[in-house]
Amino acid sequence: MASRLVEEYFRKETLPNIWCPGCSNGIVTMAIVRAIDNLKIGKDKVVVVSGIGCSSRASGYLDFNTLHTTHGRAIAFATGVKFANPELTVIVITGDGDNAAIGGNHFIHAARRNIDITVVMYNNHIYGMTGGQASPTIPRYDKATTAPYGSIDRDFDICKLAIGAGATYVARGTAYHVQQLVKLIEKGISHKGFSFIKAMSICPTYYGRRNKKGSPADMLKWLKDNSIDINKAAKMKPEELEGKIIIGEFVNIEAPEYTEEYQKMVERLKVSVK
């Protein structure tokens, strides 16, 4: 016997999961399940689409309609699923490499379209599945197997990128602040439009060791000590926010949703043709 949530929402035969000890992918995945459970969405109507990478293995563990696609393309597959059957609740599980690197083009266009899918990006700064290479969100000067002397790249502010591209719900949570993360995902799913939740995650095996971040628990504590809620941050001076992670809801606005707009267009055509 396992916990209620595992019994109800997971494919137990696929567990234990393949993630390394202390990897927070399980925490973020369970946060998604809690959100779905809280929203009481029927399992038959939920489609989880994932790309390629550690985080994207989550779809195999979940007892929904699950689609484990090709690297970087989850959002494009999800667009097809949602547009074909708008009644489905479509959630995309992706990683920072999967989404911000190879998947960037599909990410910004889905945001531009404001199609009603919820994208949860597990952000652990590296490509875990392939052994710890730097991802586009790795903090500058941090180390990875492909940045042995520290990454010289500037990292994406993927939330700003989402806002710039037109996403109408954008939030950032962390694997430490689980209760908040569940709420952010809940609001993302119930939001009608393109929802993006960046979940700061930890990779003790590659990112943690190579950058001497300590044990999994230490890495979670680091998230706790270095995250500031957006409302508090608003009252703080910029230098105080230096190097800190702002968490909470950045954008939550209503805008025409793609599949509905198409339906309205079809309605208009039918009227004009009569």
Binding site: A2, S3, L15, P16, P21, G22, S215, P216, A217, K221
Partner: peptide, 18 residues
């Protein structure tokens, strides 16, 4: 409290945060 030994990987997170 129930522990599923097969699934535990000994990461120590629960120990730290209990």
């Amino acid at each position: 409290l129930v522990i599923i030994e097969d699934w535990c990987k000994g990461c120590g997170i629960c120990v730290e945060f209990c």
